[in-house]
Design a protein around this nucleic acid. Structure first.
Length: 424
DNA sequence: TCTGGGGTCCTAGGACCC
DNA sequence: TCTGGGGTCCTAGGACCC
């Protein structure tokens, strides 16, 4: 059976989420910032038209945005995550084979449909998500995931496509599209690979498609060779309906302002560890090793730069927050250097295993009250809000915690912040 | 003052074993 | 006056994605 994929991608997703509750912002320029209000990571079409580039540092354009009447939001992941789930649920009601690829994208297998039937189904999906959730999506269809991605770009860019584009089956038509596409726009070809290919005179997707497989394997490893096959319509990347087991859990943040003292660094590391542990338990996992890292700013050229990390293997795989915090603080103490201006810290949990079957340690016994205590803590925080109960080690004032000056309310996930409709 | 966070996969190279 | 070869496992670093 011939393979056929659709890529469903939410348009300007974070901006669309914010606009759902601020309808007066339709037709106006809007941007959403990354954590710590660092960079611009989502733009409305109007903002794109003003020439605001993706990933621009906010502080560099703050005044310009103000002058041009651009509305600015801090990231509100509680809101985006919730709306993402609604989009995916709607999609699953219509399609049996769905791979959720990111917060705003999903692949669907249309194997067995011809492209015509596929396009009709895409129109129904698009209409239903708009009606049920209020989010507009674009849909690209192709014989491989990579071509579905390219089709999606075209669906989004060319208004005449009405949000849906099928990659043409006729080879010459397809090649014309690929000849027009910068190779750096192809899924899987990043900045480095693009530069490398350019050094060999290859700049378009069509050239990549026609490149010699062996040569590609040597230059870009097997992944690059696979991408070329995908461009030729030979599907090499399968639909992953069940998400693969997680291999690591990371919690890290930049600070609002540089941190010098070990005391504050300890608070931050304890906070991130506690947050990672909540994620760990949420997925019924334990961690066998933990890595702590700290770094100064990459951009402060006049300051001494330093970055270091330390990995600790835990005696027993665990999801017990106090155990993890004490290991993390131990690791931190070995890498901290006084006198530096640290900009960022993080904690990564690795060597993850499922909670049910973990290797015991002959010489140690897990704290008997641990699991019950952790689950009580998680329940209380789920019910009453994330910081209802927390560890003393996390600190109280947290003067280092990230900047979020323009955050919208948690409209859909907090009773206190529900929008209120006024009737007259 | 102010430049995100959370992931995965692949490869090279070292350690170690027989 | 010579320093094999094959295999596995682990880690660090590079590259990519959204």
């Amino acid at each position: 059976m011939a393979k056929l994929f659709a890529l469903i991608d939410c348009n300007n997703f974070y901006v669309s989420c914010e606009r759902l509750f601020r309808p007066e912002l339709h037709g106006r320029p809007v941007v959403v910032l990354s954590n710590n209000d660092g960079c611009i990571i989502a733009r409305s079409n109007e903002a794109k038209a003003l020439g605001i580039a993706m990933a621009t540092p906010y502080f560099k354009v703050r005044e310009e945005l103000q002058r041009r009447g651009v509305t600015v939001f801090s990231s509100n992941y509680a809101l985006y995550g919730d709306l993402s789930q609604r989009v995916m649920t709607t999609l699953r009601e219509m399609e049996p084979r769905v791979e959720v690829y990111s917060i705003d994208e999903a692949f669907v297998s249309l194997a067995g449909s011809d492209t015509c039937a596929g396009a009709e189904q895409a129109a129904r999906i698009r209409e239903r998500i708009a009606r049920h959730v209020g989010i507009t999506v674009s849909i690209g269809i192709g014989p491989s995931k990579t071509l579905a991605k390219i089709a999606n770009r075209i669906a989004k860019k060319e208004a005449c496509r009405r949000g849906i584009f099928v990659f043409p089956a006729e080879p010459d038509k397809g090649d014309m599209l690929l000849a027009d596409l910068d190779v750096g726009e192809v899924w899987g070809i990043g900045r480095r690979s693009r530069a490398k290919l350019a050094r060999h005179g290859m700049t378009t997707a069509l050239q990549l498609k026609k490149a010699d497989q062996q040569w590609l394997g040597k230059q870009l490893t097997v992944t690059g060779a696979r991408t070329a096959l995908e461009l030729a319509g030979i599907s090499c990347i399968n639909l992953e309906q069940a998400p693969p087991a997680r291999r690591s859990i990371l919690s890290s943040r930049s600070f609002k302002r540089p941190v010098r003292s070990l005391v504050e660094l300890k608070e931050a590391v304890a906070t991130y560890t506690a947050r990672a542990a909540v994620k760990l338990r949420g997925q019924e996992l334990t961690s066998g090793a933990l890595q702590v890292f700290i770094a100064t700013s990459r951009f402060a050229k006049d300051q001494p730069a330093h970055a270091d990390s330390r990995t600790i293997t835990l005696p027993i795989a665990t999801c017990h927050t106090p155990t993890l915090i004490s290991s993390a603080l131990q690791a931190l103490a070995t890498i901290y250097r006084p006198g530096l201006r640290y900009q960022k810290a993080g904690v990564m949990l690795t060597d993850l295993g499922s909670r049910g079957r973990r290797q015991a340690n002959l010489f140690m016994r897990p704290a008997p009250q641990g699991p019950a205590l952790m689950s009580a803590l998680d329940q209380i925080n789920r019910r009453w809000g994330r910081n209802t109960l927390h560890y003393g080690a996390e600190g109280i004032g947290k003067p280092w915690s990230m900047r979020r000056d323009f955050k919208s309310p948690a409209y859909t996930t907090s009773w206190q912040e529900l929008p209120v409709a006024h009737c007259r």
